[in-house]
Design a protein around this nucleic acid. Structure first.
Lengths: 371, 371
DNA sequence: ATGAAAGCGCTAACAG
DNA sequence: CTGTTAGCGCTTTCAT
């Protein structure tokens, strides 16, 4: 059915015949290369139009060796960070004539490996990948070794030797923690989302290598530690809460936190999904924010100022991260090879009403009227 | 640089030579078709592995006429409806061995046309498109005529003759409106997002053709009208608020609504982004929800139960809509041609605390503790 | 400015 | 089971 309908599509030889020229000439006219006299050019275009000719990108790509397609591999398109970044990527790609094929990995390294395999088969011109947390990463280095341009999004993989664009996580987390400390909090917990507890051991302190060179979660944990240590505050292992990456994981983790004999008075959540879980758990437990506990979350989701109370956040320039990643990739594809570098964009702390001094009630109306 | 690095990649002839077999045999072993003796099969695989052979999907596609790639064309990936649907699409596609290339149109018909053109060039096997509101649509019918399988997402285009999957909008909107009416509201406004006011004229009432056969916004407006008429309530043109599709458009529209001499006591917003705008505007104006005005929104966004008050919504089975669209498409691609049909999934009204009787205050604690 | 012919890497008959 | 031979639709020398 469909086969037969699509079978009769006109090809360059068809157009050439119809226009009374050679295939080479027709191809030149259609492809806009080489040189053709205005007259024949016109004739070919007319023939193409009447025959309903559509160029076959596959054939073209086979010759030219370029597909004008980028592969994007990320954890989960339903996460605000990723869909915003993706918009930055697709906009930039489109403006430069590239398409984007998308794959979700759900943080699963083997899905990631699979994705790379099919993307390589598809002969994409380059890759933007947010590497899955943990797991084997040989597939990444293999891909890089194959010569395919790649840029990392959000996370860094030491030793991979490719460009990377992301937040200055350590600094952002330190700023966020300092903000909480300045409000007078000393019992500050983090909800990290990582699978294993990220316990900043004393020996890790100020190890130069870790600075800006680790993946997101440890880097943020390091920033938290920096600020805590700097303020002379105790690092309590029970405040380092590694849940899964889902909302309900964070909610469960928060409940554990709140049932501690000495519960934290402030919580720093490492992304907006986790923050949602924290808020939900607090609501279920009947804990008021910021009266009972202050909440500060990474990522300025669209709902952040509509929740109650309006949420204080670390805003990431997500769209820019995506578009910068894409620009770097395209430049590398089209231009030449600069040395790979890390691009760390600065976060912005936006204080709304979910952060306050511990044990301090805020006037109802003030919270309500705040924008 | 990159060119040279990728140039030396092994091809089937290389592998064949290395394994001491013909290209055909090597291809059969590698491609898993035809028949090869276990021994040679093994030998070819080893040769491929040592040479680092990677199949070239372009060449394969040229022959087989199938790319195992789907084109997805939607308005804006940052909209919850779309990223959830996309997740349904990509999951389904992946499970059946297909990849997805994504394009945003921002409701711009000419971007949509462009997108279809490049997707056709890329020789995708099928298309899932959420047609842009308004504008010329010949490109859609041209595409369908070319024989490329297509299914419409969320919106219907009369006469196009393709499958479509979406919400039963008219019914869902009617249910939502009835809910508001049952609470005692009579002054109910809608924030539609459409560019032009969707004024349900008396002549349109109960026109059979319109039932389930129009695009989203008019269908929802029709459902609203159904419920209003059924309750004998007046349809006021000034309560039909057509903003743009952005949050701030809806906020502006809401302010206009609230500054009316007789402002509505309830607002029905047609998607979650618009709802956000409504809530924001109410907060800015110092109007309390649901005390001063009830709010009911389409789409159960992840933040809906965390805002204050927890939001009553019409939940769409968005993921299912996406995955069903994908399933229909793949079945059509791989199977044969059933007659195209419309699939209207039912919405679910979830009442939380943003809807109440007009002028009724809700106890603070009740709102806070509600899940 | 145009044409003839040689492939890109792979699959698909068709022989053997 | 294996090899030979044509191409898929296009670009690209190399002539003319």
């Amino acid at each position: 059915m469909r086969r037969s309908a699509r079978e009769g599509v006109a090809t360059i030889p068809d157009v050439a015949r119809h226009a009374g020229v050679s295939t080479a000439t027709a191809a030149r006219a259609l492809g806009g290369y080489g040189s053709v006299s205005p007259k024949t050019h016109q004739r070919v275009l007319v023939a193409a139009a009447t025959l309903g000719y559509r160029p076959n990108g596959l054939a073209r790509s086979m010759i030219t060796g370029t597909t004008h397609t980028l592969g994007v591999v990320l954890a989960d398109i339903e996460n605000p960070f990723f869909y915003r970044a993706l918009r930055g990527i697709t906009d930039t790609a489109r403006s430069r004539g590239y398409g984007v094929v998308l794959t979700n990995t759900d943080e699963d390294a083997s899905l990631e490996r699979e994705a790379l395999t099919t993307l390589l088969e598809r002969r994409v011109d380059g890759l933007i990948v947010c590497p899955a947390e943990g797991g084997d990463r040989r597939h990444l280095s293999d891909t890089v070794d194959s010569g395919l341009p790649m840029v990392l999004l959000d996370r860094h993989v030491p030793g991979l030797g490719v460009d990377m664009v992301g937040l200055d996580n350590r600094r952002a987390a330190a700023d966020a923690t300092r903000c909480l400390i300045q409000h007078g909090h000393t019992r500050i917990a983090i909800v990290t989302g990582g699978r294993e507890p990220v316990l900043p051991t004393p020996t890790q302190r100020n190890v130069p290598g870790i600075q800006g060179s680790s993946v997101t979660t440890p880097a943020r944990a390091a920033g938290y530690r920096d600020a805590m240590v700097e303020a002379g505050l105790e690092l309590r292992p029970e405040y380092l809460s590694a849940s899964g990456f889902h909302r309900d994981d964070a909610a469960a983790a928060t409940e554990v936190l709140m049932n501690l004999s000495e519960p934290p008075t402030a919580v720093l959540a490492f992304d907006s999904i986790l923050t949602l879980g924290v808020l939900l758990a607090l609501r279920r437990l009947g804990r008021r924010c910021p009266d009972d506990v202050s909440v500060l979350g990474f990522d300025d989701a669209e709902w952040a100022e509509v929740v109650s109370p309006p949420l204080s956040v670390v805003r990431q320039p997500v769209y820019e991260i995506g578009s910068k990643a894409c620009t770097l990739l395209l430049d590398r594809i089209e231009g030449g090879g600069r040395r790979p570098s890390q691009h760390r964009l600065k976060g912005q702390l936006i204080e709304r009403d979910s952060t306050a001094a511990p044990g301090t009630a805020v006037h109802e109306d003030a919270a309500l009227l705040a924008t």
